[in-house]
Write a protein that binds this DNA or RNA. Structure first.
Ligand SMILES: [Mn+2]
Ligand SMILES: [Mn+2]
Ligand SMILES: [Zn+2]
Ligand SMILES: [Zn+2]
Lengths: 144, 144
DNA sequence: TTCTCAAAGGATAATTATTATCCTTTAAAA
DNA sequence: TTTTAAAGGATAATAATTATCCTTTGAGAA
């Protein structure tokens, strides 16, 4: 993603363009597996050694509030972040911290249709997220 | 749930029966809305004022490991617990900390059928959990 | 019933991700 | 260039959870 594209996204939301924000947005786009704040902090340290960890958290929050990124919660006591904000689900590996994206419009339609028919009393559904939990088989996953 | 029933559940799993475990299990069954460790701690304090908070965490972990209860994760930095271990989903209220259970075998069958047909490459699905996010309407929810 | 001891609990300190504070710096508009 | 509200840096505080370490106890054995 180019500098111009990131600048565009920030100004579009009325956010100040700063080197910190540029670096953090670039990092979360580049890092796979839904990085933590620390992953991001570490990554940007190479080129921007003096961005403080507090700033990383603050910027990630601002991004999430402005729908530039998304927060992804896990079993563990650590938040993870996702550069993809369009509707999708997550595949959780039950024996590693791997989290993969899962896009499936057929499934989304199926669920939408289902919950249009079967209403939950007094409840307005805004969003449905699936956590698909299981194991990758025959892969090159890092062994501890 | 009677004392005998709880004792039965514990011995069945080979767990020592202690007053602390009895009280904590009873509390989590009785408390609704998927209590936190602190909710449970507070509740049992009435009858058992000297069960320490560390014990509550330890016992809840032991229970979860032995499938007597389940952990429920949330957006917030706090774990919640669920006395119901059979397969079900959760309804999250988007403007309060309410979490309701959602049982729906028709939906479970639908999903099972769907993922039997549409396989995820190199992945064995073990469990699928839905987070149904939205708002309760026209209810007596506590207003802040 | 008493004895034994691994398992469990209590008190308290430590951990750790995250947030708050507060002063300094800076992006961007005038 | 000047202005200033917003943003960043350094550091302390918070809060849920976990670890430590000594004491107590449940439950089987004798
Ligand atoms: Mn935390
Ligand atoms: Mn925590
Ligand atoms: Zn994702
Ligand atoms: Zn539940």
């Amino acid at each position: 993603m180019s500098t111009e594209e990131i600048t565009g996204k920030l100004t579009e939301k009325g956010l100040k363009v700063t080197p910190q924000r540029m670096a953090i947005y670039e990092a979360i786009v580049k890092l796979k597996n839904h990085p933590t704040a620390e992953n991001i902090s570490e990554y940007i340290r190479k080129n921007h050694p003096n961005i403080s960890v507090g700033t990383v958290y603050k910027v990630l929050d601002v991004f999430a509030e402005n729908r530039l990124i998304q927060k992804v919660k896990t079993e563990k006591d650590v938040m993870r972040y996702d550069a993809i904000v369009e509707n999708h689900h997550h595949i959780y590996c039950s024996d590693s911290d791997r989290i993969e994206d899962y896009f499936d419009n057929e499934l989304n339609d199926l669920l939408e249709t289902y919950f249009k028919k079967k209403k939950i009393p007094d409840f307005k559904v805004e969003d449905i997220k699936l956590q698909i939990i299981g194991k990758y088989i025959q892969n090159n996953e890092t062994l501890t």
